[in-house]
Design a protein around this nucleic acid. Structure first.
Lengths: 111, 111
DNA sequence: CTTGTTAATCGTAAATTTACGATATACGAT
DNA sequence: ATCGTATATCGTAAATTTACGATTAACAAG
């Protein structure tokens, strides 16, 4: 944003927005999907899977890590990644916890 | 992105990423939270709540609408908005449907 | 110690997002 | 018809994101 207004929002809204932003790119969704499926994965395999340069994949991994959705571990010359279970759980829970839920079957016919 | 690579990803990944992108800003999280709570809300009330100019709020509403997470309805000179229940449900379900879930309690100690 | 492999970081260009004020539009009320 | 209110859209500047190639760093193998 031009003039950052982040400080004017609640920490909870900022946190949820950050998690969402981390998933706001198909490559990062694909990465998380892969990690959730395979439990863990080395960077190189992700590079092969994705239609992106190695440096770009690395950047996306960094973004997911910074948001706390994944964890990385160095394994010799390569890097293993996996989903950060605890934080990902918090992320999913946030939607309901924050009142953003599909409460009781209220049928809104007009809109 | 510089050179759009969106077409190289699956429609499902693109859709989930788009929904996430719609929630990737505190203002839009706040809007959705408010709409979920109040069931519906007119634009002007959101403008009062948020620390943003009217035109900016309108822009955020447009983004949420474009992503399909909310619906708008004209009510005389004002606009009423509400959560798009069906799509929001799809959004939340996407996380589990797409395999991005916290499957069985696998304790990952190392990473 | 040199070489090859893997991944992170740097520098950078192009696209997109975010924010605002100004303007346009739509409608109710007078 | 005119005025006031509510909202959307336009134009635009600044910040951020995305992508890439090139470089650096870290490590294993020889």
């Amino acid at each position: 944003m031009a003039l950052s207004r982040k400080e004017d929002f609640s920490d909870r809204d900022i946190q949820l927005a950050e998690w969402c932003k981390a998933m706001a790119h198909p490559a990062r969704v694909a990465i998380l999907r892969t990690l959730a499926l395979k439990k863990e994965c080395i960077c190189g395999d992700l590079v092969i899977d994705l239609p992106l340069a190695q440096s770009t994949v690395s950047q996306h991994l960094k973004a997911l890590k910074k948001a706390g959705l994944i964890q990385g571990e160095v394994d010799g010359p390569r890097s293993k990644y996996c989903v950060h279970q605890k934080n990902f759980e918090k992320f999913l829970k946030a939607f309901s916890d924050y009142g953003i839920r599909l409460s009781e079957k209220i049928e809104i016919s007009s809109c």
